[in-house]
Design a protein around this nucleic acid. Structure first.
Lengths: 156, 156
DNA sequence: CTTTTCAAGTCAACATAGTTGACATGAAAG
DNA sequence: CTTTCATGTCAACTATGTTGACTTGAAAAG
């Protein structure tokens, strides 16, 4: 008896007819994003966190003492949407907030040691995936990948 | 008076310090995905549709007469999650379903003309973005991009 | 013919990630 | 003192997904 061939969650790439020349590229973008984030998301889930938490940690790691308003702008979400994940991170002491000495209106965010550890570990999973892929194609291939992605990213 | 410099929705790319070598690649994957889907999502929103509807249309376009169970497997979502967007597409007559002649259990899905038109238009927006990016780097660059993305996609 | 199997459809409850609108607080700037 | 403005919080909503339980109806097996 056939074991029912469940491809677990989600498709097998390349199981679809290509109607157009660039269909493979569209599908690769989708699976590429999924592939890069898969292990990181699994790790984050084990920590009781998810993608938006990682996005916050990632940005704060690269901009210590960022104000909440700037973080909102940077993430491109509303303050209400930021509220819950941000408070979770503060409660879990992965982030600290303090008032600015001069600009007492703003709160400045920083990662704690624990926050740094989790941010790094989650990002490491993503970097590892990228690193292996870049190794396969060498420096010129990696540069070409970056060039393509920059064009796409700035196409908005 | 400054016009408040709202960067609209979401960040300016490249405003963050790079803590690691591959941080730029992580950010490019994020913005690349966003950039590729942005115009398509705007178009879909005008049609009262969104990404999951497009995913369904995309798959059915490339596998006419696909059964619902196969579609569920292909999309990697639960039948309950498929239910609402699928029924919307049927109601809007972008999809048709008929029972298989021999396998009368299964329902077979097909795009209507209108469904084909919308699927093509949404996918065209995405293909156009990819096409422009590939044009910039030439065939070898495009091939390198595909090679990198294949490695990443299969890294799960 | 009866029973089992199985694809499909449906209902309820829930989680997550976002939205808009309204309003409170408290420090800074006029 | 009053206005401005970053921040915080509440409520209501939408969209997209989940799991579990159950029905329906045709196919296959007895």
């Amino acid at each position: 008896m056939m074991p029912k061939t469940s491809h677990a969650a989600g498709l097998h790439r390349a199981s679809l007819e290509k109607l157009h020349d660039l269909d493979a590229a569209l599908e690769l973008m989708y699976y590429g994003w999924r592939g890069m984030t898969l292990q990181a998301d699994e790790y984050l889930a084990k920590q009781g966190l998810s993608r938006p938490h990682h996005r916050i940690l990632y940005v704060v790691a690269r901009r210590p003492d960022i104000a909440i308003g700037t973080l909102i702008e940077t993430l491109g979400i509303s303050k209400q949407a930021l509220n819950r994940p941000l408070n979770l991170l503060l409660d879990r002491k992965l982030l600290t907030s303090r008032r600015s000495p001069e600009q007492h209106r703003s709160k400045l965010l920083r990662l704690t040691e624990a926050g740094q550890r989790i941010e790094k570990k989650a990002s490491d999973y993503e970097r590892k995936v990228m690193c292996e892929a870049f190794d396969r194609v060498g420096a010129p291939g990696a540069a070409a990948w970056m060039a393509v992605m920059e064009t796409i990213a700035d196409s908005s």
